[in-house]
Design a protein around this nucleic acid. Structure first.
Length: 423
RNA sequence: GUGGCCUUAGCUCAACUGGCAGAGCAUCGGAUUGUGGCUCCGAAGGUUACGGGUUCAAGCCCCGUAGGCCACCCCA
């Protein structure tokens, strides 16, 4: 026997029994996208490495150590890995925005996307090399109203998905004008305490001082006394953030200020947020996150255009739901068409066809087993109804049996779908 | 990328000190040719994750690899 081939590390199969739950989550995402007036925009699963390097920042973890690289066919010009599977959606969407000159479209562009993202890190529960994200982006809207609209949208998604106790962590990390000052303050502060930093943080201090705040090994007092971005915001950023906060309050949306929330990707400016189940913040289980990126379009060669968006990890939402004991998703009632006559294949197909025409969910039993076996099998696959095709067909009728009660009666074919639908 | 724990049938797990690889559930068939869920009988299902080593003998001991999980790291 040849060696067995298994799924790639960190990638999973979606099994039939999980399908309904995924379909339900995706349906919520699609419906909310529609209700909040976002239009669908899909970009390729892979892009040039250069796009992510420029967009997310050379020193971001996503680029520095998690890039899932792909190359062209052996012998092709692209045999060297020049592409990478997308680690996040924003860079690709902004690339498309610039490439297709979408800045000339009327009004801010509001788009959504749903699909797999890839990061080459070490898998763990809730952390996969391929994971699915629902993403929304708004380009050309400086806010601050839209900032709050997005936080509200995310909250609504979690509520509909049935995850309770989701809390938004919020921060503002300034813009091109004030961020350099904040950066310098961090450099001065951590530079004078360099002996108390981990090796990793010392390295970060040189390449990206903001991310020292991400270090969870940071001594408590060192962290508590560290410069806060909110204290270094320029006037415009301070105004922006203050309006965001008052709008959140007015909308009754709870949030927690998190001074250490700086986000791992360099493109963020001003408002940043991450969503957690309250009390589980420490366990690397962010359910979603996002923020404003007012400089990214320009960075990728477009005209200066503000942007904001978020991504929600559906895998983790599903996990959180399971942990909270959310009842499993149920599918539509199933009807199985059975017959004692092995030759009645056409009859079974025709009856099934009639029911499907009426929108019902039907699987005909194609076997030649005894009727009892067919009914048993129907029960086991979870059918609610059995339609028994037999001699009654000469009178244009079949027997409709309720598999949960055992009650059955002869029903005219013409009224069968209605008879099922009315119960 | 670092450290730790784990891997036996589709699933959950047994297998004494290194001595014939098993059970329950699930699947399929029969008892029962137009009436299921219960019961009884039977079948099928394994390179014990993979590769090597020690041994008369390895699921068990040793080494390596892969995968899963946990803690880091980071994020969704």
């Amino acid at each position: 026997m040849p060696p067995r081939i298994t799924a790639p590390r960190g990638a999973r199969d979606l099994l039939p029994e999980q399908g309904e739950a995924w379909t339900r989550l995706e349906a919520i995402a699609r419906d909310l996208s529609r209700r909040y007036a976002f239009d669908r925009l899909d970009t390729p699963l892979f892009e040039r490495v250069e796009l992510f390097a420029r967009g997310l920042g050379e020193t971001s973890d996503a680029v520095e150590k998690e890039m899932f690289r792909v190359s062209g066919a052996a012998g092709s010009e692209e045999e060297r890995a020049e592409w990478a599977l997308r680690p996040e959606p924003t860079a690709g969407i902004v690339r498309a925005f610039v490439e297709h000159g979408m800045h000339v479209r009327p009004g801010p562009l509001r788009v959504w996307m749903l699909g797999p993202m890839f990061r080459y890190d070490r898998p763990q529960a809730g952390r996969y090399r391929q994971f699915t994200q629902w993403d929304v982006e708004v380009l050309g809207d400086p806010g601050p109203m839209v900032d709050v609209e997005l936080v509200e949208l995310a909250h609504r998604f979690y509520a509909l998905a049935g995850v309770r106790g989701v809390v938004a962590h919020l921060n503002s990390i300034g813009d091109a004008e004030c961020r350099p000052r904040f950066r310098r303050a961090l450099l001065d502060y951590f530079g004078s305490h360099e002996d108390r930093l981990t090796d990793d943080s010392r390295r970060r201090l040189r390449v990206n001082p903001l991310r020292v705040l991400d270090d969870r090994d940071l001594d408590a007092d060192l962290a508590a006394n560290a410069p806060r971005s909110l204290d270094h915001l320029c006037h415009a950023c301070r105004e922006h953030f203050s309006t965001v906060r008052s709008l959140l309050d007015a909308m009754g949306l709870a949030y927690r200020l998190d001074h250490r929330l700086v986000r791992g990707l360099d493109y963020y400016t001003r408002t940043t947020f991450e969503f957690f189940v309250a009390g589980r913040e420490g366990q690397q289980q962010a359910l979603g996150g996002g923020g404003r990126y007012d400089g990214l379009v320009e960075l990728l060669g477009g005209r200066p255009t503000p942007g904001i968006g978020f991504g929600i990890g559906l895998d983790r939402v599903l996990l959180a739901g399971e942990e909270q004991g959310i009842p499993p998703a149920v599918s539509d009632p199933l009807i199985v068409v059975v017959s004692a006559d092995p030759g009645a294949m056409v009859d079974r197909l025709r009856v099934a066809s009639v029911l499907r025409e009426a929108g019902l969910r039907v699987r005909p039993d194609g076997s030649t087993r005894r009727l009892g076996k067919q009914l048993e099998s129907a029960s086991k696959v979870g059918a609610h109804w059995a339609v028994i095709v037999g001699d009654e067909l000469q009178r244009d009728a079949v027997v409709l049996r309720d598999l949960s009660t055992g009650h059955q009666e002869e029903v005219e074919l013409a009224g069968l779908a209605e008879a099922i639908g009315s119960r």
